[in-house]
Design a protein around this nucleic acid. Structure first.
Lengths: 147, 147
DNA sequence: GTATGTGCAAAACCTTTGCTATAAA
DNA sequence: TTTATAGCAAAGGTTTTGCACATAC
């Protein structure tokens, strides 16, 4: 099932209404690559329908997050802005270049190990792992380092 | 050298003034366990000297961070608030219990491995790693689970 | 028809900053 | 005396919310 249909169904299953605004926002998400943030979605939605408000974008993001259709992350250590991405992909993490802001996604078995280690060492149950890395990507390293 | 002396010296070395307000804030940090946030420091500083403002607390935190005396982190996935801790301890990370909010600090060799793996796989230079874990601590797990 | 969603503008929240007075050196 | 710092209050930036109206079902 594609993202739009899944979203339609999830929203209706939750007793919600699949409004025109939500349809526009959801379609934009489905057509997005990797990550999107609220403002980005808002600009694009607004271009299609001037009446769409930022509040509606946020409310739609929340509805889909509650439905488990998208996940929220931060990409930078300073956590200045939330980004979202479709849920259900394999667990992965992000590295952001401090210079060109490119994002590299990667998987990390190390985190599973860490998780297990913590569960057995401390008896905790680890629910969520937030990990943001930054530094310089290969290209930016070779063309005049900063920092 | 203790924290107060180190801070005094660092601030003066940077051409700054070691004001009475800064002394109070720095003393409170030195007497703090593990983490502190701006508001917490502010309340405690304000109890000692009513005239101390939150802005001064923040500015002092920045001055010490610039001097490399404290490090800033987030403890929760939602990154709602910055916390600080004295710098120079071994690299470590934090797990926060979603129920009782206790914080468990731990070291993680897995992160070094991950870092090296990324550097060789992608040619990136990893500068900073931000990792926040949450879940339930052992105690909260045994006494009536939530979520 | 009824409950849910919308737009707007204002609030919330933590953090930063402009300005003028103050105080460290 | 000089120059950094203080306090205050206001601004910043993202995200949330109260309210009255609109709309999906």
């Amino acid at each position: 099932m594609n993202f739009l249909d899944a979203a339609t169904e999830a929203i209706r299953d939750a007793g919600g209404r699949f409004t025109n605004q939500r349809r526009i926002v959801v379609e934009l998400m489905a057509g997005s690559e990797d990550h999107f943030d609220a403002e980005e979605l808002y600009h694009r939605a607004h271009a299609q329908d001037e009446s769409i408000s930022l509040a509606t974008v946020y409310r739609t993001l929340h509805a889909l997050e509650d439905a488990g259709l998208i996940d929220q992350h931060y990409l930078t250590r300073d956590h200045d802005r939330k980004v979202y991405e479709p849920a259900g992909e394999a667990e992965h993490y992000h590295f952001t270049c401090r210079q060109c802001h490119r994002v590299i996604e990667f998987q990390a078995d190390e985190i599973d190990l860490l998780r297990q280690g913590l569960e057995s060492a401390y008896g905790v149950r680890v629910d969520r792992v937030c990990m943001c890395l930054d530094g310089l990507c290969a290209e930016c390293r070779s063309s005049g380092e900063i920092g």
